[in-house]
Design a binder for these strands. Structure first.
Length: 287
DNA sequence: GAACGGGTCCGTCATGTGCC
DNA sequence: GGCACATGACGGACCCGTTC
């Protein structure tokens, strides 16, 4: 944060920005307006647009958390997982047993989360809901706030973190084309079905499966495989982005609440000061 | 104990935003 | 313009307290 932060009392640390753009944060750099007894912050933003948002968080350090506990799980290319039948069990390296259900639906791109919509193709609804959504206005991005917070650090941390915590991969719902599975050994019985693990990118590997002639399993071609892999990767990234976004939002709201408390205190102090000055003035006037 | 409502969390989708 | 990222909206799952 390259803004200048002043405070009478405690230091602010790298406080986030004020989303309300209110009072002290939006004050011009030359406005020496801060006089109070409580923890009041004057923030001078260097070259921000009028709409720039910032949050001041006195008495509290801004915490930037990274997804450091997320571990990348990779399966080497060419691994083969043998499955005897649907609802087989995956025994991961962590020793957790997870149910594997094979959904023999050709061309389906069902995710492991068990959503009813299996593909992007179902996204084209012209429902009132969609119109309603289109009517809604979006609030400004947090991006600028992040920059003030030290977004570069976050970005670096994000780059450093590895996606794909295998414990977060839900294998209990269903597993089909494009599913990302964690590394681990799959215990089999007779091995009627073959699950070929390809790719092995971040977060796991893409599962294909074939079977004997009597079954209806579908072996995707390279294009479909690529599509599903891209989709899984996109979903994985978006999942983590959503998680991070929610965390930031929570912190943001906490900042707002702190800001409200500070401003209320400031208001109270100013009222008291005004009151005493009035009394003093009346006293001198009567003399 | 069942039903219900409210709150929270999570994954996904759609889309805005910024960067190259 | 295309891409990656950020984020609002939505729906589902789960938990918890309350009421009957």
């Amino acid at each position: 944060m390259d803004g200048m932060v002043e405070e009478n009392g405690t230091s602010t640390g790298a406080g986030p920005a004020d989303p309300l753009g209110s009072a002290s944060s939006s004050a011009p750099a030359s406005a020496p307006h801060v006089v109070a007894v409580t923890s009041i912050v004057q923030l001078t933003l260097p070259t921000q647009a009028p709409s720039a948002q910032s949050v001041i968080q006195p008495n509290q350090q801004s915490v930037i958390q990274t997804a450091s506990n997320i571990q990348s799980v990779q399966l080497p290319k060419g691994n083969v997982i043998l499955v005897s039948k649907p609802s087989s069990v995956i025994h991961t390296t962590q020793g957790t047993l997870q149910t594997l259900q094979i959904k023999p639906e050709p061309n389906s791109l069902v995710s492991t989360q068990g959503q009813s919509c299996s593909d992007d193709s179902c996204s084209g609804d012209e429902s009132p809901k969609r119109k309603y959504r289109e009517m809604l206005t979006r609030r400004p991005s947090y991006r600028k706030i992040l920059n003030d917070l030290g977004g570069a650090e976050i970005a670096e941390n994000r780059m450093g973190s590895k996606p794909g915590n295998e414990n977060e991969v839900s294998l209990s719902s269903s597993l089909s084309f494009g599913s990302v599975i964690p590394a681990g050994a799959l215990q089999t019985e007779s091995g009627l079905h073959t699950l070929a693990v390809s790719g092995g990118g971040a977060g796991g590997a893409i599962v294909q499966y074939s079977t004997n002639q009597d079954e209806h399993f579908y072996v995707p071609g390279p294009m479909l495989e690529d599509q599903t892999r891209k989709r899984e990767l996109r979903l994985l990234k978006n999942r983590e982005a959503a998680r991070e976004c929610r965390r930031k939002k929570k912190e943001y709201i906490k900042c707002l609440e702190n800001r409200v408390a500070v401003l209320e205190n400031q208001n109270k102090a100013l009222i008291e000061e005004l009151k005493s000055l009035k009394e003093l003035y009346c006293q001198q006037k009567t003399e």
